[in-house]
Each structure stands twice: as structure tokens, then as C-alpha cells.
Design a binder for these strands. Structure first.
Lengths: 125, 125
DNA sequence: TTATATGCAAATGATTTGCGTAGTC
DNA sequence: GACTACGCAAATCATTTGCATATAA
């Protein structure tokens, strides 16, 4: 069911290169639909990520993050300011191949997050 | 300050190969110190991981996990039951080298988590 | 029309914090 | 004795859920 709310959430997410939290998405959606509720945002983010239209990122920090880029890619997170960016890097075929059988698990995928200090914070430090 | 509480938490954590949550550690500690509080457990886990004596894992799921193994290693998480295990696998020198400069960040480390289905759950499925 | 989604508010679950007392160095 | 940590309970923060109403197909 493509409701107005769901469409707006999806559109707003697609405008961004970044990885907003649920409440950031709520603020963006609210500019277009002032009566939308935070609960609706959470519900739709869940549904959209279940059906693969967006990606839910469970990276470090207390809040989950979301992005509209579904292709496999990696992230860097800044230790200092917490900002998160995509990593431009050829796919790590080494890992992709190495994980076929790990600990006798059936491996479905992996999550790779880099941790470091972003250029901005490097300057300030 | 090595209090009785802090020592017990550390000892209990070192007994395990697994990656317990704060409340699991609380239960373990409580068998030896019945009056210990959950707040104390959280405070000590924070302090111990800050000074590098244990490791705080911010993997998927809602709860943080902790382990006493400080050397760099990776994890597998089961999609179905949520259990988490260490991965026995030679260090991925490919990544270790590849990450020296990513997106102009100063890279300090990375977090790698595999996702799959554990042997137990494979049987049940 | 009928299932599904919404807004609102209250509930939940993990973690953190304030405060007065107790323990460690 | 001074500083740090403790136990307890209340507070906080992100997220989820119940319910009566509204909306999309």
C-alpha cells in the first residue's frame, strides 16, 4: 500500500547521500506532511527495509540509520563527531569469497564498518 | 580502583568464550555478589572497556555485548536466534592494508560482522 | 468495501544518572 | 581522610504498540 506518508519518506531518503536516523527522516517528512507521526515513520522504515527498498544500518551508536542505496557497500564512521559516509572502494572479493563457510554457519552477508577520524575533525584536532 | 564488584565482573567475563549482554553479566555477578546493582554493572563495563581491559561490541540487535578478548577478531551473528560467535579465520590482511586511507579519513580500525544462520538453526529450519 | 495504514499517546526495553552512603587506597 | 564507587530508584532515549479513525485499492 503506497500511502502518501510512505512515498514521502522514500522520496526524502532518495534525495540524500547521507544516512539519517529515524527522527531526522521524521523532520524531513514533516516539512511536507506536517501531521505525520514518528510512529508512522518507524513503521514505514521497517516495512521499506523488509521489502528491500531501503537499507537499515545497525552501525555503532545508539540509533539506527537508513539509506536508500541498496547495493552492497561499506561505511566509515568518525570517532569524534559520529558522522557516517559511504566508502568508495572496490568490493572486497577477498571477504566475499572467504566467508562462504565460516564456523559452519550458512553465511548470508556481512557488515563492515570502518572507524576513524573524518577530514573535518582532523583539521579541528 | 579495583572494587570487589569490578573484579567479579572481570573474572566472570574471562570465564566465557561468548559475548554476553550487560544483564547476562549482571546475573552472573549476582550469584557471587547478591546485592550488586545493574547500574554498577553498566558503570564498570564502561570503565573496563575504556581502559581496554574488555571489549564493547556494538553489533546488530538492540543490546550491546561485551567480551574479554582484546585481540582483533571478527564475529558471526545468527539471523535466526541472534547468537554470536567468534570467527576462526586468519586476519584479513587485505582489509587491514586496504583501509589505510579511505575517504581521506584517518582510519583507526574497523568492525566486521558476519550474518548468517548457525548450525543449530540450520538443523531446525 | 475491506484490508491496511495512520495519528496519538502510552508502553517498553536498554542504558544512564542523581544522590546519599560505603569502600578503597 | 579523600576520593571513587556503590546501591537504589528515578530519568532518559530510541523504538514499539494499542486503539479508534482514515485511506488506498
Amino acid at each position: 500500500m503506497m500511502t502518501r506518508q510512505r512515498r514521502v519518506i522514500l522520496e526524502e531518503l532518495r534525495k540524500l547521500e547521507s544516512h539519517p536516523t529515524a527522527d531526522e527522516i521524521y523532520e524531513m517528512a514533516r516539512r511536507r506532511l506536517p501531521r505525520i507521526s514518528l510512529g508512522t515513520v518507524y513503521r514505514n522504515l521497517e516495512i521499506l527495509s523488509e521489502c528491500g527498498m531501503i537499507r537499515k544500518l545497525e552501525l555503532g551508536g545508539t540509533q539506527k540509520r537508513f539509506d536508500s542505496m541498496v547495493r552492497n557497500h561499506y561505511h566509515v564512521r568518525c570517532l569524534r563527531c559520529g558522522c557516517i559516509e559511504d566508502v568508495s572502494m572496490e568490493p572486497l572479493t577477498t571477504i566475499e569469497n572467504a566467508i562462504r563457510r565460516v564456523n559452519d554457519y550458512e553465511i548470508i552477508g556481512f557488515r563492515l564498518e570502518f572507524i576513524g577520524v573524518c577530514p573535518q575533525c582532523k583539521k579541528e584536532a
